[in-house]
Computed example of a mutant assay.
Amino acid sequence: MRTTVIATLLATAVTLSLVAGAQVKEGTHKEGHLDYDHQSAWKGTLDHAQSPIDIVTTDAQKAVPNEPLALQLQHLTGAQVDKVEDNGHAVQVDSHTTEADIRGRHFTLNQFHFHAESEHTLDGKHFPLEGHFVFKAQDGRLAVIGVMYREGAANPAVQVLLDDLAAAGGKLPQPQIDIAALLPHKLGYYHYLGSLTTPPLTENVEWYVLPEPVSMSKTQIDAFLSHYRHNNRQIQPLNGRPLIRYEG
């Protein structure tokens, strides 16, 4: 009897292992890796409020005149960088000192990362890169500020990140960064309610996409592209969700 039980347990373990292997192959992610060529196999909670979207500027509703406080960011200069890494599907920076009051509510920056090409589009136009600055409220609510990057003058804050990334897990040569240099001067935005753009694709995420692009040099863009040339999720339908334009 004991031999039979052991054999059954072994057979079950092998079966589960095969199933798990198949899921990783189909879907998509193992130790942070995502297969962007087979996004239809991603596992997650898929409803009717997914991200990213194409922002059709003429369809956006103008924000009400008393839009509450909009985006108010603090502790941008000298922000502490805890880690810069290639996490398997993006270049990610962990930083927790920057705070934000977003439409009257308090959030703290958790991390920011980069997608190539941009995940959101403006009137169908992609940018070379899009940065996602992920903020979290005390109650767990997420708000993401999306920033577009274009080719132009070199960006010293971007170079800090690239130098830290080159340290490959060692001591960061520059453990502080000027996050303001990664953001446009004008914090006007397009706002809608969407989702995470990677599994589990959780919805009820507040999005604030800044249309004014920030420049970085071709060399700096190429440095990001050397890690990922295609880590952008496909455009998702808006499905009647309100899209708000705040001029800033």
Rank of each mutant, 00 (worst) to 15 (best):
L16S: 13
M216F: 10
P211M: 00
D35Q: 04
A166M: 13
Q220G: 03
T77C: 02
V19N: 07
D37Q: 13
D37R: 08
V144H: 04
A137Y: 07
Q174I: 02
L162I: 14
Q174L: 13
G248A: 12
E26F: 13
I235W: 04
A167N: 09
L162K: 01
H132D: 11
V84S: 01
G104H: 06
V24H: 08
I221F: 03
V205W: 07
H113S: 07
V209H: 06
R2W: 15
L162N: 09
G188Q: 12
P175R: 02
G27F: 12
S215W: 05
L16M: 13
E212C: 08
I102F: 12
Q23R: 12
F112L: 08
A137C: 07
K136D: 00
L73I: 12
Q39F: 08
L243M: 13
K30F: 14
G169K: 10
P184C: 04
K43S: 14
S226W: 01
A20M: 15
L210C: 05
P211E: 05
Q234F: 09
N87W: 00
T8W: 14
L34A: 05
L109A: 11
H185V: 10
D82A: 10
A100R: 01
H126T: 07
L201H: 08
L210P: 04
Q176Y: 00
D82V: 14
G32W: 04
Q111A: 07
K186H: 14
I145C: 08
P237I: 08
